[in-house]
């Protein structure tokens, strides 16, 4: 049964790279690109052809990452989420990842549907949706920094960081 956590870790890394990679793409590249594209009238290229595809892989990669992470924790799942049995550090990473997953499905995606026109919305609703989606996305970039620290070092390198 050692194959399950080993394969789960592989999948967790691949999906996680896709999720956080696209999150960084949105925040470090697309936000600024969209501003410039709106100014020269070419924003539709991004909003019509790039953003919907990026969001599709982004939101489902988030789900796969979380599920693979849960499989990787296996019997330590409850200990991690309750900070028991020396699992507090990886548990913080797991909680941060879970909050980020909620931000994706509870805030970013529902508001992006209004922004991109998949769901009818007035101009006022779109402006509000744009602000909420932007802040949720930026909050996820902020949370990704401690999340990756605790994921990378919370268990495998806990001797270095936490003296365990």
């Amino acid at each position: 049964m050692d194959y399950v956590p080993a394969l789960a870790r592989w999948l967790h890394f691949m999906a996680g790279i896709m999720w956080i990679g696209l999150l960084y793409y949105f925040n470090f590249v697309q936000v600024a690109a969209l501003k410039a594209a709106t100014a020269d009238g070419t924003a539709a290229g991004i909003t019509k052809h790039v953003a919907p595809r990026a969001l599709l892989f982004f939101r489902w990669a988030a789900v796969v990452t979380w599920l693979a992470g849960a499989a990787l924790l296996g019997g330590q799942f409850v200990n991690a989420f309750t900070f028991q049995g020396g699992m507090a550090a990886i548990g913080v990473g797991a909680w941060l990842g879970t909050i980020m997953l909620f931000n994706v499905w509870g805030l970013i995606w529902p508001n992006q549907k209004k922004i991109l026109g998949f769901k009818p919305a007035t101009d006022e609703e779109k402006a509000k949706a744009r602000r909420v989606a932007f802040l949720a996305s930026r909050a996820n970039v902020m949370l990704s920094i401690p999340m990756l620290f605790f994921m990378a070092g919370g268990l495998s390198h806990r001797g270095v960081f936490f003296g365990m």
Binding site: N27, A88, A89, V92, V141, M142, I145, P146, F161
Partner: peptide
């Protein structure tokens, strides 16, 4: 006060500060 999440640098610095805070919180638990 300006929201730090409005700028990329503000976001990254906030993330680093949060990492430091959580690190010491976890260290006190373990």
């Amino acid at each position: 006060m300006k929201n730090p999440l409005d700028s990329l640098w503000g976001t990254v610095i906030s993330g680093l500060i949060l990492t430091l805070i959580l690190y010491f919180v976890v260290k006190s638990i373990l």
